[in-house]
């Protein structure tokens, strides 16, 4: 999972604000998950890095898709 220090290295391109860790709710195939992820404190855009997308999220998708 991305740490606060890592999140603060990123800045929202639209708002110019450094990202902060925020609880985000994912929805996928009727399943929902609360996860702490970096997000823009201004517009709320969430940053999902490649490791998360191809790692945890892919594994969760596989389970929800009953694969």
């Amino acid at each position: 999972m991305i740490t606060l220090e890592e999140a603060q290295q990123w800045t929202c391109d639209a708002c110019g604000k450094p990202l902060v860790m925020r609880e985000v709710e994912f929805y996928y195939l009727n399943g929902s998950f609360h996860v702490n992820l970096p997000a823009c404190p201004e517009c709320g855009l969430v940053f999902i890095n490649e490791a998360l997308a191809t790692g945890k999220m892919a594994e969760v998708e596989g389970i929800l898709e009953d694969k």
Binding site: N30, G31, F33, K56, E59, V60, I63
Partner: peptide
């Protein structure tokens, strides 16, 4: 209600990196 078990597995993955 297998979706509930899948959701729990999903939470464990997010919290621990993988099952």
């Amino acid at each position: 209600h297998s979706l509930l078990l899948a959701e729990l597995a999903g939470r464990l993955i997010f919290q621990h990196g993988s099952l």
